[in-house]
Computed example of a mutant assay.
Amino acid sequence: MDRLQAMMAFVRVVETGSFSGAARHIGVGQPAISKTIAQLEDRLQVRLLVRSTHGLTPTDAGLRFYERAKTTIQEADEAELEARGAGAGLGGRLRISAPTTFARLLVIPRLPSFLAQHPELGIDIVLDDRVIDLVSEGIDVALRMGQLSDSSAVARRLARGRRSVLATPAYLERAGTPSLPAELAAHEAIVYSQLENSWMFRKDGTEASVAIRGRVRVSAAEGIRAAVLADIGLTVNSDWMFAPELESGAVIRVLEDWELPPVDLWAVFPTGRLASAKARAFAEFVERESL
């Protein structure tokens, strides 16, 4: 019995809920699938499937075997793709996760060239500012900004961006332009509630720690942008988040001679399995774009 083919048959049975469904998917007769699963259970000396009103369902042991078998099949497929040099023509679907505003401004507008390179590839984009579980959500690669909360994550740094104090000319005309970091305490700040809002500014060996405060706290970057563009206050944020406005002059930097900690962009891959060729190709594409 071919172990990989047996794993594939078992995975298809679990996903379709029946021997007949797996047989149609693989292109063999139902008796062959039934015999393969029986041989697999005999070899492992454990019951993998039970019949229920909903069809065939995996036992606890079967569910654990399913997860491992599915990963093994994926890795075998990726190994074949790499051996064939198939990276130049990827296919199937790629499921990515990215922060909403960052993806809207800087990732999605660049996708046409990536899709043109891989005409057989489809992309599912999950937009979420939260750190989601990649395995349970079926994510192939996630783009994340800042410090990674999980030190065991399989990650690759793609880019490093500048942070600045940002505001509209209209707000600065009304409230005045700060010339020192300490003056930020007197300003109305748009606070990102998912971050610590105490910042260390550096200039010529001098350091200044400032905690920015404001009446408006926002849980997503899109809200930060909207509040700043409504002239409510200033913010400390990555230049990436205001790239179009910085280019047009609708938002400007202040305290430019003071340096803030940079922000990193990461590609994070699911733990427990190899990153797919599609996921790696997408991460390399984002890195080449030098966002």
Rank of each mutant, 00 (worst) to 15 (best):
G29R: 15
A103H: 04
L255Q: 03
T177F: 02
Q74E: 13
E196G: 09
L291F: 08
R213G: 06
P169M: 05
Q45E: 11
S18F: 10
E222F: 11
Y171R: 01
N237S: 15
L246W: 04
V216F: 02
A250S: 13
M8E: 15
M241Q: 09
V126G: 03
V154Y: 06
E256I: 08
A103G: 06
M241R: 05
V135N: 13
H54W: 07
R280D: 03
R95P: 03
R51E: 07
V165W: 01
V251Y: 00
I232V: 15
L44F: 09
H54S: 11
E222C: 10
A279P: 01
R217L: 10
S193W: 04
V286C: 08
E120W: 04
D128L: 07
A277P: 03
S136P: 10
V14Q: 00
A153S: 15
L172D: 01
P112F: 08
F242D: 01
L106F: 04
T71I: 09
E196W: 03
F285P: 02
L121W: 04
E41C: 12
P181F: 04
D128A: 13
V11T: 06
L81V: 12
L105D: 02
G27Q: 14
L111N: 05
A69E: 01
D264W: 00
A277F: 00
L4I: 11
A227E: 00
A230M: 05
D42A: 14
Q117S: 13
A211G: 06
R130A: 15
R162N: 06
Q30R: 15
V131M: 08
I125R: 06
L49M: 10
P58K: 10
P31T: 15
E247N: 09
I96T: 01
R64M: 10
R160L: 08
L195I: 00
L105K: 02
G92A: 08
R225S: 02
V50N: 09
T72H: 08
V191S: 00
D204L: 11
G249M: 10
D128R: 04
D150H: 11
A182S: 11
S164G: 08
H54M: 07
R156K: 13
A23E: 01
R202K: 13
L48K: 02
T57W: 04
A98S: 12
S18H: 12
R163F: 03
R162E: 13
S52Q: 09
K203A: 11
S209V: 11
A226W: 01
T271G: 14
F10I: 09
G87R: 03
V210G: 01
E80R: 08
L274M: 08
A32T: 15
L148T: 05
M1L: 11
A22H: 01
R160Q: 12
G89K: 05
A167N: 02
L44Y: 08
D133C: 12
G85L: 07
Q45A: 12
T177C: 06
P270H: 03
E256F: 09
G146S: 05
A208N: 12
A221V: 09
P109F: 12
N197Y: 02
E75F: 04
D2M: 05
G85W: 05
L229P: 00
A185L: 14
